[in-house]
Amino acid sequence: MKFKTIHVAWTLAALVCLTAANLLHASSHREAPLIANDPLADNTDLYAFRSPDNPDMITIIANYIPAELPHGGPNYYTFGENIRYEIHIDNDASNHGDEIIYRFTFNRVNQDPTTFFNIRLGAQNRLTTYTCERSTDGGLTWMVIAENGVVPPPNIGPRSIESGVGLSTTYEDLFLQAINTASTGEKIFCGPVDDPFFVDLGGVFDLGDMPRQNGAPRDGLA
């Protein structure tokens, strides 16, 4: 299998907490024509901030896959299996190279090939797991710090998630169970989340009709 490597770079004083997410409704960063043809590899936004619950920790959120829509079934959006998602951290701008690099690779398994439904009877036909590696020498060597991390499925609906013919759980529990602790101490989450932005994309690209001349603005990301 050939891999494409996607780099996301950031400068930080320290990194303790890492979050990577793909979006159910991601930002519209589809201006670059080449990456628009490869949406699974399209990193839309990167956030880095001191964690509000612990100022000694830094949270990094890397978002991928722009402009997802809720009616994407049965083949809902997910991370690409032939893509290396990387976050590069440069703690010392005076030195060449990156002090820390995180690499994520993903794998999908069809637990129930007898149905086209994404979830049925406790099984998923697009169950996604990941491996996270870390390099501290500019990518020369790598150490696996998390294996078989679980990506929660899309929140398809109560029958698929909560009922006895689905997963018999709550989506909140699926989300919390997907938070993984790496062997080196980082907290990791990979999975679908809602986009925090409000932007009227339809108005923006309709010759800059923002605010709209007729009618209220419409959130194109939620």
Results as ranks from 00 to 15, higher is better:
2 K>L: 05
9 A>H: 13
9 A>Y: 09
12 L>M: 07
13 A>Q: 09
15 L>R: 00
16 V>F: 07
21 A>R: 08
25 H>T: 08
28 S>K: 04
31 E>K: 07
36 A>M: 09
36 A>Q: 12
37 N>D: 10
44 T>A: 04
44 T>N: 05
45 D>L: 09
48 A>H: 09
50 R>N: 13
52 P>Q: 05
54 N>P: 01
56 D>T: 10
58 I>S: 07
60 I>H: 01
62 A>N: 15
65 I>N: 03
65 I>P: 03
66 P>I: 04
68 E>W: 07
69 L>S: 13
73 G>E: 08
74 P>M: 04
75 N>A: 09
75 N>Q: 06
82 N>C: 08
82 N>G: 06
83 I>L: 07
85 Y>G: 00
87 I>E: 03
88 H>Y: 07
89 I>C: 00
91 N>W: 02
96 H>A: 15
97 G>T: 06
98 D>Q: 08
98 D>F: 15
98 D>G: 02
100 I>L: 11
100 I>D: 09
104 F>Y: 13
104 F>T: 00
107 N>S: 15
114 T>R: 14
114 T>A: 15
117 F>S: 10
118 N>E: 15
122 G>Q: 09
127 L>C: 10
137 D>F: 02
139 G>D: 03
141 T>F: 09
149 G>A: 05
153 P>R: 03
154 P>R: 11
156 I>D: 09
158 P>Y: 08
158 P>H: 11
167 L>D: 04
167 L>Y: 06
167 L>C: 04
169 T>V: 08
177 Q>G: 05
177 Q>L: 10
179 I>C: 08
184 T>Q: 01
185 G>Y: 11
186 E>N: 02
190 C>K: 00
191 G>A: 03
191 G>H: 02
193 V>I: 15
193 V>R: 12
195 D>K: 00
197 F>Q: 11
197 F>T: 06
198 F>M: 11
199 V>L: 12
205 F>G: 03
206 D>T: 10
209 D>I: 05
209 D>W: 04
211 P>D: 06
212 R>V: 01
213 Q>L: 12
213 Q>H: 08
214 N>P: 00
215 G>Q: 04
215 G>H: 05
216 A>K: 10
